Amino acid sequence: MTLLFRDDPYQVEADAVVVAAGPEGILLDRTLFYPNGGGQPGDTGSLTWDGGSTAIIDARKAEALVERGDQVLHIPTPDAVLPPAGARVTQKIDWERRYRHMRMHTTLHLLCAVVPGAVTGGQVGADRSRLDFDVPSASLDKEQIETAVNELIAANHPVRERTITDAELEATPDLVRTMSVKPPTGSGSVRLLQIGTDDAIIDLQPCGGTHVARTGEIGGITIVKIENKGKQNRRVQLALRD
């Protein structure tokens, strides 16, 4: 399966051919739909073909098909009419929702650049997102963090994907900020998300999600609250300002 969102997260519509369709989901030969993973929800949208259409309410990794490589199941509404195998379909993602996820996910990387400590968990959402940090200091300053993140947003830093080898990642373990989820290895390369230029990096860490091309697209954010989730665990919740 070709993962079109890897090459262009801004692509909204594309054709595809149905490989298989059943109650567990629809499998295409290529997809725009990001599957639930890494704290980012699966995309929603629609599939349309000659004589039918169905809403897609989720996209998930097809764990039972891992031996066939990257596979994404497109989950239709219950009792939906399914396209036949071999049918050519037009897939379309819910762009407004996806774009908010892209802006939010990029913001969480900026939050990592501002808040010290390892990440112990997180979740991307269209309305609110969060990261949990294992912080050596008992307190975090809400206003200070908000100001620092918004300054990075306003600076309109470039955002791009890079790849390194499994061996390079093993040699630079500090790139992994997340304690709860380890980046997938074994394929020979690992995707990195870089914010900033090569000579002035703001954040660099493994990530397979979708992101905006420049931080200025985020607009602005508000730190909604910071919660105490343990002796050194602090949950930072944020929201986009629009």
Rank of each mutant, 00 (worst) to 15 (best):
S180K: 09
T147D: 14
P136V: 04
G219E: 04
I202K: 00
M179H: 11
L169M: 10
R235G: 07
S180E: 12
T120I: 04
L175M: 10
S137W: 12
D127K: 15
I202F: 02
L204D: 01
T178Q: 13
V149L: 02
E227L: 15
I226S: 11
Q232P: 01
Q205W: 01
E151F: 05
Q205N: 11
I218N: 09
I145A: 07
D174Y: 11
G188T: 01
Q194I: 00
P206R: 03
V124D: 09
G230E: 06
T165I: 01
V190W: 00
D198M: 04
Q123W: 13
G121P: 05
I145N: 08
I221K: 05
E151K: 15
A138E: 13
D127Y: 11
S139P: 04
T120P: 06
I218Q: 05
A167D: 12
S129W: 10
T197V: 02
I164K: 03
L131Y: 15
A167F: 04
D198F: 06
A213E: 11
P206N: 05
D203Q: 08
M179Y: 08
I223L: 09
L152F: 07
R162D: 15
R177T: 08
C207W: 05
N233H: 14
T222D: 13
T185R: 14
N228I: 04
H211R: 07
T178K: 12
R214V: 13
N233V: 13
D174P: 04
R234K: 12
